[in-house]
Deep mutational scan, measured.
Amino acid sequence: MDALKSAGRALIRSPSLAKQSWGGGGRHRKLPENWTDTRETLLEGMLFSLKYLGMTLVEQPKGEELSAAAIKRIVATAKASGKKLQKVTLKVSPRGIILTDNLTNQLIENVSIYRISYCTADKMHDKVFAYIAQSQHNQSLECHAFLCTKRKMAQAVTLTVAQAFKVAFEFWQVSKEEKEKRDKASQEGGDVLGARQDCTPPLKSLVATGNLLDLEETAKAPLSTVSANTTNMDEVPRPQALSGSSVVWELDDGLDEAFSRLAQSRTNPQVLDTGLTAQDMHYAQCLSPVDWDKPDSSGTEQDDLFSF
């Protein structure tokens, strides 16, 4: 819950932080000083300027060897085509990944977070970031790969997607708890209302004896509580940590079903599988986004697919 609360507080303090972009060759504004600060901008989305290598189908939802083989196929196909790589912007948030063309600003792909089953910074092609997700059109699994400016960037994108998945799962947990509370309150309110109706004398007997209905007592009954809980029953509950912020979080049926399955089948359902080692994760978390744009010590960066 700490990640969720800190993310909400950060967004309320400075929503404009989320509009910064990394990996864009110096076009961005001043960047936060450390990885923790940038992680807090996830709610509205972190932007990464990358190059799209392509996509291939895979048979399993996750796995280092599986993704490595898929990336190898994608890279080989991209090299064989001889075409310049498409420059894209990857927007990562707890909602998922939005992929747009840098030149036309046209939407290429919009992947809900619950469809993503794996992401990684490839070991062999260490400047490549990739994720595996279920197609929104059918049940097939797709591996999408992107060329980053350097290994640090690939690791940073991988960690960002993993963190977005974690925050999304926490949102789901909060929403589920809130819905259970509202359902319980609604049920209790309905029981109270039913009890009051059972003990209320029939209207005919009131008229016969000349008694008047006590409207004041009726007004004191917990009807307002019942209506408050039943009027918006169809509205999706939102985490309290975000009250007053500009973010509107809505959970669709697909996300609810997917996270429910994860909660039942996995020990740590909030953790998205990645190909990063503990050492890689520690190294990337210690980086400032400013470091992502620094040239690798191995030599001059080449803006070309064939540089790796």
Rank of each mutant, 00 (worst) to 15 (best):
K220P: 08
Q155N: 09
G275V: 03
N268W: 04
Q155Y: 10
L287D: 02
Q279V: 04
L251Q: 15
A168P: 01
Y118C: 00
Q155M: 10
G299F: 00
L272P: 01
F169D: 01
W172H: 01
L272T: 00
C286P: 08
E109G: 12
E33P: 06
F48N: 14
A162R: 07
I97F: 04
F165L: 01
V207R: 10
V271S: 10
P32M: 12
V157W: 02
D126L: 00
S260E: 02
F306C: 06
D304S: 09
L17D: 15
A69H: 14
S135P: 08
S175I: 00
S307M: 07
D2E: 03
A78S: 07
D214N: 08
L90Q: 07
W249E: 10
Q279N: 00
S224I: 06
L47R: 15
T160S: 11
T230G: 07
F48A: 12
L215T: 14
L17K: 13
I108C: 03
K72V: 04
R151Y: 03
D252Y: 09
E178W: 03
G63Y: 10
R151I: 01
E250I: 00
Y131P: 04
T218D: 03
N110K: 13
G25A: 03
E216F: 13
P94G: 06
A208P: 03
L31H: 04
A68K: 07
D37L: 12
L53P: 12
E109N: 09
Y52A: 08
S186E: 08
I97S: 15
L255D: 06
P269F: 01
L47H: 13
E65Q: 09
T274L: 02
A68I: 01
A3C: 09
T158H: 01
R73Q: 13
E59Y: 14
D273R: 08
V290P: 01
K72L: 13
E109A: 08
P32K: 14
K30H: 08
K51W: 06
E178M: 03
V207N: 05
S14M: 00
K84D: 15
E180P: 00
N138C: 13
T41G: 08
L203G: 02
S112K: 00
S307K: 00
S227L: 12
G299E: 05
R115S: 10
G8T: 04
L251S: 10
E64T: 15
R151Q: 04
M233W: 03
R29P: 13
V157A: 00
Y52C: 13
P222W: 05
P94E: 02
A133C: 10
N229T: 06
I98F: 12
P32C: 02
Q240E: 05
T120Y: 15
C119Y: 00
Q279I: 05
T120A: 13
S135Y: 11
E142K: 11
V75E: 09
N110M: 05
L85C: 10
D293R: 01
V248A: 10
Q285W: 14
P201M: 02
F306G: 00
H144T: 09
G24D: 12
S227W: 05
G23A: 09
I132M: 14
E142L: 14
E65H: 11
D126V: 03
V88S: 14
I132H: 12
L47G: 09
W172V: 01
P295K: 14
Q187T: 06
K19E: 10
R13N: 15
L276D: 06
Y118N: 09
E178Q: 01
A7L: 02
E59Q: 12
G190H: 05
A145N: 05
Q285C: 03
G275M: 03
L206E: 07
F171Q: 06
D126T: 06
N229H: 03
V236Y: 00
V75W: 15
R266G: 00
K294R: 00
V157I: 00
G45M: 15
A156P: 00
C143N: 13
G190V: 13
K176F: 03
I12T: 10
R261Q: 10
R261C: 03
M55H: 10
E188H: 05
V92E: 12
F169T: 01
D198E: 07
L147A: 03
N211K: 13
L251T: 13
I113T: 07
Q136M: 13
S288D: 02
G254T: 00
K176G: 07
Q264D: 04
K79M: 03
K181S: 13
H144W: 12
M281V: 10
D280K: 09
A3L: 07
S16N: 08
V58R: 07
K87I: 14
A228N: 07
K294F: 00
L43I: 06
A154L: 07
M124T: 03
A154D: 03
G54W: 04
L193I: 08
E142W: 12
A284D: 08
S297P: 11
V248S: 07
Q285F: 06
K181M: 12
N211F: 03
F165H: 05
E33I: 09
L159H: 11
S112P: 00
A80S: 08
H28S: 15
E301Q: 02
H137N: 15
I132P: 14
L262M: 00
S265K: 00
N138I: 12
D280H: 02
C286M: 07
L212K: 06
K294N: 08
E65R: 10
S67E: 15
P61L: 10
K181G: 07
K220E: 01
L17H: 09
D280E: 04
M124K: 11
N229M: 01
S265G: 11
K127L: 11
L107Y: 11
Q173N: 07
Y283H: 04
K91F: 04
K184Y: 12
V236L: 09
K127C: 08
N34E: 11
M233R: 09
E257R: 04
D253A: 02
S112R: 00
S224M: 03
D304I: 00
R115G: 15
T56C: 09
S112Y: 11
K87P: 13
D273C: 08
T274Y: 03
A76Q: 09
T231L: 05
L213S: 04
K184G: 14
K127A: 09
C148I: 00
D122F: 03
L47S: 13
Q155D: 13
T300H: 08
V192Y: 01
Y283G: 13
L47K: 08
E235T: 13
N229D: 10
G24V: 11
E177A: 00
G275I: 07
G189Y: 04
K179S: 04
S260V: 03
D304W: 12
V167S: 03
H137Q: 14
Q106Y: 06
K294W: 04
S288F: 02
D252A: 13
S14Y: 06
H144I: 13
Y283S: 03
N34C: 03
R39L: 13
G45T: 13
S140L: 12
L47D: 13
R73D: 13
V290D: 05
Q240A: 05
P269S: 01
E301R: 04
K123E: 10
V236D: 03
V174T: 03
E109V: 02
F48S: 11
L272C: 06
L287S: 00
A263I: 07
V161E: 00
G210T: 09
I108S: 04
L47V: 07
L57A: 08
S49T: 11
G8Q: 08
T231E: 03
P94S: 10
L103H: 03
G190S: 07
A156W: 12
V236C: 07
Q270K: 04
D304Y: 09
Y131V: 14
A258L: 01
V290K: 01
F259N: 02
A70L: 03
F146H: 07
D252W: 11
L287K: 06
W35S: 13
T89G: 14
T149H: 08
M46E: 08
Q173V: 10
E33D: 15
K204T: 03
A185Q: 03
I116P: 04
F171L: 05
W172N: 01
V290L: 04
A7I: 11
A145S: 13
T100I: 15
G275A: 02
V167P: 01
K220Q: 11
S245K: 07
K220I: 07
W292V: 02
D183Q: 00
L50G: 11
L99R: 13
K152C: 04
K181F: 11
P61R: 14
N268R: 09
A80V: 14
S81C: 02
L57F: 10
T56S: 12
E142H: 12
Q264L: 00
G45C: 01
W35M: 05
D191G: 15
K51I: 11
S265I: 00
D191N: 05
D273I: 05
S14F: 00
W292L: 00
K150I: 03
L287Q: 07
Q173K: 01
E216C: 05
L206Q: 07
A130E: 10
D101F: 10
S245D: 11
L50K: 05
T230H: 01
T38P: 09
Q240G: 03
T160L: 12
R151N: 02
Q60L: 14
